[in-house]
Amino acid sequence: MQGNVFRAPYPVPSLGVSEEEAILARSMALGEKLGQRFTQWQEQFASVENVRHLGSMAAFDLVTAFR
């Protein structure tokens, strides 16, 4: 199948499952936990920088620490 998934024959039931399982809320909560943990690492380790997250997409940069 090609094209936009929202034009596929089954998008409506899929979106209903997302709402029923509170996927967005769970994603936001997970992102907050990851952000807090990564911030702790940034304070603890000189090689962790640029902590960021948007929902459950979370990342940080590992850098070489020069002292």
Rank of each mutant, 00 (worst) to 15 (best):
F60N: 04
R7I: 02
N4W: 02
L15C: 09
F38M: 15
S27M: 08
A22P: 00
P11G: 00
G16L: 12
L24T: 09
L30Y: 10
A8P: 00
F38C: 07
E20D: 10
S47V: 07
A29H: 09
G16Q: 14
L54R: 11
M57V: 10
G3W: 08
L24I: 13
L30N: 06
S27T: 09
T64A: 13
F66A: 11
R52F: 11
E32F: 06
V12C: 00
F38W: 11
P11L: 01
F6C: 04
R67V: 12
E43Q: 15
F38Q: 02
T39P: 01
E21P: 00
R7D: 10
M28T: 08
L15V: 12
R67N: 13
V17P: 00
A65S: 14
Q42T: 04
D61T: 13
T64N: 10
A29S: 06
G35W: 02
I23Y: 07
V51G: 05
A8N: 01
V5T: 07
M1I: 01
G35S: 14
A58P: 05
N50E: 15
F66E: 15
A58K: 08
F66P: 00
R67F: 06
L54N: 10
E19N: 07
Q36L: 05
V17H: 01
L15W: 10
N50S: 04
S18I: 14
A46P: 11
L34I: 02
R7A: 09
A65D: 12
A29Q: 14
A25N: 03
F6T: 02
L34A: 15
M57P: 00
G16A: 09
Q44M: 10
Q44P: 01
S47G: 07
Q36N: 12
R7S: 14
Q42Y: 04
F66H: 09
P13I: 08
D61Y: 05
W41T: 01
E32Q: 15
E21C: 08
G31E: 03
Y10C: 05
F38A: 13
P9K: 00
E20I: 10
S27L: 03
F38N: 10
N50L: 06
V12I: 15
S47C: 14
G55N: 09
S14F: 08
